[in-house]
């Protein structure tokens, strides 16, 4: 640098400050567009909702013996995965059970409320057990203590439709929390 004129220095410093601010602003603005567009798209899944819970025909009441023992049935429904539509696909499973002489069907989601694995029947021990972390449930879905699961199996709304059709309101719930909260 040649010579030290305080006026020039001061002016230079002021201009320098302005230049810095403008350089940062211009650079920042220029980067904002791709970054913003990127974040916008990355956040898109937050707008997506699962298909509205609706009653789906699962089976007929005769297919569920009235012996209190749950039977597993697949949930078959149309499914959309981003751009692909799958007509009538198995998307999950429920356990249905009926007490002796009763017409009331209890429907339990096979998804473990602990961490989302697939709960299995354990006929030898008259209970449900999750193969992942050993959460155990009674045949009507209650917790067998001590269990890692924070709540009983998720009961699904179930009604008997025309001609003895068993219809279940298929829903997913948040796992790992004590309350049964449906996923949006």
């Amino acid at each position: 640098m040649q010579g030290h004129d305080p006026a020039v220095d001061e002016q230079g410093a002021r201009r320098g400050f302005l230049s810095k601010v403008m350089a940062l602003a211009a650079g920042g603005l220029a980067t904002l567009a791709p970054a913003g567009a990127g974040v916008w798209v990355l956040l898109d899944p937050l707008r997506r909702k699962s298909a509205a819970a609706s009653f789906l025909r699962v089976t007929e009441i005769e297919a569920i013996p009235d012996d209190g023992v749950p039977r597993q049935f697949p949930i078959v429904t149309d499914r959309v995965d981003a751009w692909t539509g799958f007509p009538a696909e198995p998307v999950g499973a429920v356990y249905l059970r009926r007490e002796k002489g009763s017409d009331v069907v209890q429907a339990l989601s096979a998804t473990c409320p602990h961490a989302g694995c697939f709960v299995e029947m354990e006929p030898a021990e008259h209970c449900f057990r999750c193969p992942c972390h050993n959460s155990s449930f009674t045949l009507d879905g209650g917790i067998v203590a001590p269990s890692p699961s924070p709540r009983p199996m998720d009961e699904l709304e179930c009604r008997i439709g025309h001609g003895g059709a068993v219809e279940v309101k298929w829903q997913n719930f948040f796992t790992g929390i004590a309350e049964k909260v449906a996923r949006p």
Partner: peptide, 26 residues
């Protein structure tokens, strides 16, 4: 599902990572 347990942002975080409410293409 475990990521969904993070306080406040958990469910949103899970949905962002999974790419929607269900597991699939995204």
């Amino acid at each position: 599902n475990l990521a969904g347990l993070v306080p406040l942002v958990g469910p949103a975080l899970q949905q962002l990572v999974v790419g929607g409410p269900d597991y699939g293409h995204h």
